[in-house]
Design a protein around this nucleic acid. Sequence first.
DNA 1: TTAACAATGTGAAATAATTAACATTTTTCT
DNA 2: AGAAAAATGTTAATTATTTCACATTGTTAA
Lengths: 206, 206
Amino acid sequence: MKHLPHKTIERLSQYRRALLLCHAKGMTHIYSHEIAKIQHITAVQVRRDIMLIGYTGTLRKGYNVKELIDLIGQIIDSVEGINVCVAGIGNLGRAITNYFSGKRTKLSIVAVFDVDKSKIGKKYHGIECYAIEEMARVIKDKKIEIGIITVPAEDAPAISEMMVKAKIKGILNYTPKPVNVPSEVYLEEYDMITSLEKVAFFVKTD
Amino acid sequence: MKHLPHKTIERLSQYRRALLLCHAKGMTHIYSHEIAKIQHITAVQVRRDIMLIGYTGTLRKGYNVKELIDLIGQIIDSVEGINVCVAGIGNLGRAITNYFSGKRTKLSIVAVFDVDKSKIGKKYHGIECYAIEEMARVIKDKKIEIGIITVPAEDAPAISEMMVKAKIKGILNYTPKPVNVPSEVYLEEYDMITSLEKVAFFVKTD
DNA sequence: TTAACAATGTGAAATAATTAACATTTTTCT
DNA sequence: AGAAAAATGTTAATTATTTCACATTGTTAA
Ligand SMILES: NC(=O)c1ccc[n+]([C@@H]2O[C@H](COP(=O)([O-])OP(=O)(O)OC[C@H]3O[C@@H](n4cnc5c(N)ncnc54)[C@H](O)[C@@H]3O)[C@@H](O)[C@H]2O)c1
Ligand SMILES: NC(=O)c1ccc[n+]([C@@H]2O[C@H](COP(=O)([O-])OP(=O)(O)OC[C@H]3O[C@@H](n4cnc5c(N)ncnc54)[C@H](O)[C@@H]3O)[C@@H](O)[C@H]2O)c1
C-alpha cells in the first residue's frame, strides 16, 4: 500500500463517517454494496478502495465494521493526533468551530484567531480566541499543524503567509481568494460558489 | 463544445472569479500563465479549458478579460437566472445566505426554510424565512430550481425528499448525511471534515 | 529585414481513476 | 452431495484528465 489516490483518501474518510454510524447502530458487518448505496457509488469502487488499504473482508459476511473503522483510522489519522487552528471567527469560522468540535478524536481545534478586540480572550465552544499577532507563538506552543482560513477574502494571503512562517504543515482555505504556499505546505481550497455554480450548470436547460 | 469535463466546469467558475477581480482592477488582458499562477495550476491546463469552450485569445496579448468573463457566463449561467433556497437557517445556513447574497447575478437565494417558530417570518439578509411545511408551495411559486441543505444531519434525507417531491432540479447537501435522489436530480455533497481529514493525511508524518 | 522571443492552440502521450469481467469461495437449498 | 446464489478480490479494459511537445504566429529589437 504505497500511494493511495487522492480520491481514495476522500472516500475513506466518507466510508468511516458512514461506518461510525453503522457501528453506533450495532451493526457488526457490512457489504461493499451497502457502503456503495450510502455513498452513491459502485460496490466495485468500494471493494477496490478497501483492497488498496490491504483489508480483506469475509466472504458472504462482508467487512467487519469495527475493524474497518480502525484500519481507516490507521491510514488517515496520525497516532498522536493533529492540532488545528481557525483564523477569523466570524460567521463561517464559528460555524466550523462548532461543527468540528469533538467530531474526530484525532483532530482538535485548539485555538482560534481574530483581529476584533471584542472577540479576543473570549471562548468559542470552549476554545480560546487569541489576537492574530500571537499566531506564531500559539502555533508553536500548542503544536498546531493545520490552519483553517475564514477571514475576509482580502486578508487571506497575509494570514496564509503568517501560517507558513509559523511552520504550519497544511492549510484549508475557505475564502474565495487563492493563496500561495511553498510546496512543502499542503493546501486545500474550497469555494461554495464553485459548487453552487456547478450544480447550476448541470441543472440549466438553455 | 459538446461535453465539458466536470473538472473543467469547476475551473471555469474559478477562472471567472479571478477574472472578475482582474476586471475590477482595470486589466483588459490576461495570459494563461497568469491565470494559472492564481489558481495553482499549469498554463496548459488553462489554455486547454479555454480551448474547450471555443474561445481564442490574441497571440502575445493573451485573453480579453471581459470577453472571457462573458463567455464563461454563457457557459455556466442560465439566461434567465436560477433561484435557490436554503433549508435550515442555523449557523451554516446563515453564513451561506450571507456569503452568497449578491455574489452572482444569475444565482439568487430567494427563500430560506426552517422549523423553528422564532425564525419563521423573519428575514435573513433580506430573504424571508418560511415554515418547512410551505416548501413545496414556495418552490413552485418562486420557481426555485436548486436547494441547499443545512439542517441537522439526521433531517437531511427527509428534506431532500421534500425537495425532490417539489420538483427541484439540483441539491447541494452540506450535511454529513448522504441523501438519495432520483437520477434526474443533480446532487452535490460536501463535508468539511473530509477536506480536513484529507489535509491531515497529507500532513502526517507517521 | 530578419532572428529571437513569447505567447496561443492542439494532437498525441502519459497518468489517474473507474468500471467490467470473472475466478474464487462460502453458504444455502434441494 | 451437488447445484445455485451471493459475496469478495483482482486483473484487465476503459474512460477521464492532465501533461508533453511542438507548430504557429505576432512582436520586438538588432
Ligand atoms: N459565510 C460563508 O458561508 C462563507 C462561505 C464560503 C466562504 N466564505 C468566506 O469566508 C470568509 C469569512 O466569511 P464570514 O461570513 O465568516 O465573514 P465574517 O465577516 O463574519 O468573519 C470574518 C472574521 O474575520 C475577522 N478578521 C478580519 N480580519 C482579520 C485578520 N486580518 N486576522 C484575523 N481575523 C480577521 C473578523 O473580525 C471576523 O470575525 C470570507 O472570506 C468569505 O468570503 C464564507
Ligand atoms: N457548521 C458548519 O460549519 C457545518 C459544516 C459542515 C456541515 N454542517 C452541517 O450542516 C448542518 C447544519 O449545521 P449548523 O451548524 O448550521 O446547525 P444549526 O443547529 O445551527 O442549524 C440547524 C438549523 O436547522 C433547523 N432545522 C432543524 N430541523 C429542521 C427541519 N426538519 N427542517 C428545516 N429546518 C430544520 C434548526 O431550527 C436550525 O435553525 C448540520 O447537519 C451540520 O452537520 C455544518
